[in-house]
Design a protein around this nucleic acid. Sequence first.
DNA 1: GTACAATCGGAGTTTCCGCTCCGCATCCGA
DNA 2: TCGGATGCGGAGCGGAAACTCCGATTGTAC
Lengths: 198, 198
Amino acid sequence: MTTTSSGKPLRADALRNRAKVLAAAEDVFAAQGTSASTEEVARRAGVGIGTVFRHFPTKESLLEAVLVALLERLAAQARDLASAADPGEAFFGFFARVVAQAATKQAVTDALAEAGVDAREATGRTGPDVKAAIGTLLERAQRAGAVRADIGPSEVTALLAGISYAAGRAGGSDDVLRIAFDGLRPQGGTADQAAARR
Amino acid sequence: MTTTSSGKPLRADALRNRAKVLAAAEDVFAAQGTSASTEEVARRAGVGIGTVFRHFPTKESLLEAVLVALLERLAAQARDLASAADPGEAFFGFFARVVAQAATKQAVTDALAEAGVDAREATGRTGPDVKAAIGTLLERAQRAGAVRADIGPSEVTALLAGISYAAGRAGGSDDVLRIAFDGLRPQGGTADQAAARR
DNA sequence: GTACAATCGGAGTTTCCGCTCCGCATCCGA
DNA sequence: TCGGATGCGGAGCGGAAACTCCGATTGTAC
């Protein structure tokens, strides 16, 4: 991450500017949505527009870089929790934390959706990372009996994106989260069986 | 809905064109997302751009009209199911139907989100309609013991929006739907749940 | 049938935004 | 310290999309 795509080492100031731009982009996109203008990012970063476009030749590539950074941070958080004492608590805690973040930062939701569908270039590389990290978190929780056994990382990621979306819009995210958690726990039987039993 | 905002009766052709524009807008926004151009809508409707802007002075107002139409249709569907034989089936069937629609029509998701937050002018009038219709559906299902008793229409609407969003992006919508349904059912109260709730 | 008003159509205007270009500033190796 | 290479800044280009305006057209009352 310290070189350009052509392999040349970057000058010190260029490296600094690249970081400034990335941080500013993250702020701006989080606050105003992904349709915020590149000029706004440049202003926030305290650099010229030309600088932004030199480091990220396309607005799409800038967005992608921001999303990748978000996803990497998510993956790191998930990995940190992989060795927690209580697997169930680790899994649900991670879930809740992501949703809480998404409530204010719309970009997180987009990032999660992106990770689910990928099709993008760079996210196609970190997307699986997130899914893998969530996967181990999920597996441990399942082995501990805290989470139902009949779902995989894809379903969790999709649900995460959906609940995050809901939390970002509506106010009462706690209740929705509770419903999702209950749905994720081991069920007393299949849907039909449960219905027949009552 | 047959007069302009100034109260004058509309000419017959104007009325026809207005309907054509609305239908075309619904199609276009469903297919290409809400960022589709007004010109595209006009082309699809077979009218000039000027006509579109006369009936809907702003793109936002056009979008709003489309969303209101969607919400009204949703509310009508919900009301029709309010007298179904099996309240649980009615509730979950409605839920599944909405999600299935959202998988292809992104606009539905936006409409639901809009209904949850409103803040808009016209949706502020039909949003409550949807919520009320869902409310009766929910209440009957709750009284029949098919849905947990500790949630209200707001939570259902939010969850509906979130799951619809997830279904529209990721592929495996069935599994996510299953998780949501299980979360919506009355909870038997596993040891963990009982411990967590108290 | 006629006249008038309402409506239509679409070229043109305005605004906004992604992106380029190139003279100037800054860095860094010798 | 000095010179070449690298990076910076921001005016400006190109195009897309929302919205306006007015002559042509069409519906409707009499």
